[in-house]
């Protein structure tokens, strides 16, 4: 009995060691995997706050793989506006003007609906390791969850954020918190997950806050009210023809 107890203590003591034994590459890959679905449908809202006040926009979003997504805004002010992302390109559709705009290059840096999220932030290539060199800095508990703290340094200048520091859940590999900085370590943006939900056995962020650390009082909260993973989706949803219906 005493021996068993000892073994348990040793095992418990060894847990952090065992967990940290996992390589940083593995963590990142599992993190990417947790964020990638073959298809998804979600419903939610974006609450953006700046020094002029608060604004709420609601949306429906469809996604397939890492490259294709369609967001359709349903709130009154933006009703019918759509953002279609295909590999490497973003199209905006404005129903009032019946106008289709293709965003490229520098235009992708514009913010989505005046929030702290840029179009570029949405074009998330989910192959983080191709763009960043990651190292584990340690562990920390965030909201009662044990996380790996990982610092990622961009391998090239074509990545928007030269340095990212992320807190990845040891168990679910969900990112609880991320800090985006310049090369010199100047903190630009911070992302924090405020609430989660379980969908098909996966833990996903349901309430995420993004704030621009250089602009006071600037904060965007993205809330997912509904999420379906791997629903059957018509591939034509992600076509340009579909954009203008």
């Amino acid at each position: 009995m005493k021996r068993i107890f000892l073994i348990i203590i040793i095992l418990i003591a060894l847990i952090p060691f065992a967990l940290s034994a996992i390589t940083v590459e593995e963590i990142i890959n599992r993190m990417d995997a947790a964020e990638t679905f073959s298809t998804s449908f979600s419903r939610g809202e974006i609450l953006s706050t700046d020094r002029f006040g608060q604004k709420t926009s609601t949306f429906n979003a469809w996604a397939r793989g890492a490259d294709e997504s369609l967001i359709e805004f349903t709130s009154v002010a933006e009703r019918g506006q759509k953002v279609l992302r295909t590999k490497g390109e973003i199209y905006l559709f404005y129903p009032d003007a019946q106008e289709l705009i293709r965003l490229q290059g520098a235009a992708l840096r514009q913010s989505l609906l005046g929030s702290d999220i840029s179009y570029e932030d949405m074009t998330g290539e989910k192959n983080t390791l191709a763009q960043y060199t990651a190292t584990i800095e340690g562990q920390e508990s965030i909201g009662g969850r044990f996380c790996h703290i990982i610092t990622m340094v961009a391998k090239s200048r074509t990545v928007a954020y030269p340095v990212q520091k992320i807190w990845v859940d040891m168990e679910t590999f969900m990112v609880w918190k991320a800090q985006y900085s310049t090369q010199n370590g100047r903190l630009l943006k911070e992302m924090e997950v405020l609430g989660t939900m379980e969908v098909d056995g996966r833990i996903l962020p349901s309430r995420t806050a993004v704030s621009d650390k250089l602009k006071k009082d600037s904060k965007t909260i993205m809330v997912l009210t509904e999420m379906q993973i791997d629903p059957p989706l018509d591939p034509s949803i992600f076509s340009l023809q579909n954009l203008t219906w």
């Binding site: 200048r157 074509t158 954020y161 030269p162 310049t182 090369q183 010199n184």
Partner: peptide, 14 residues
């Protein structure tokens, strides 16, 4: 003053 911009390549710089 602080300037936040995008460097040659697109990375954020302040």
């Amino acid at each position: 003053v602080t300037l936040v911009t995008r460097g040659n390549g697109g990375f954020y710089e302040a």
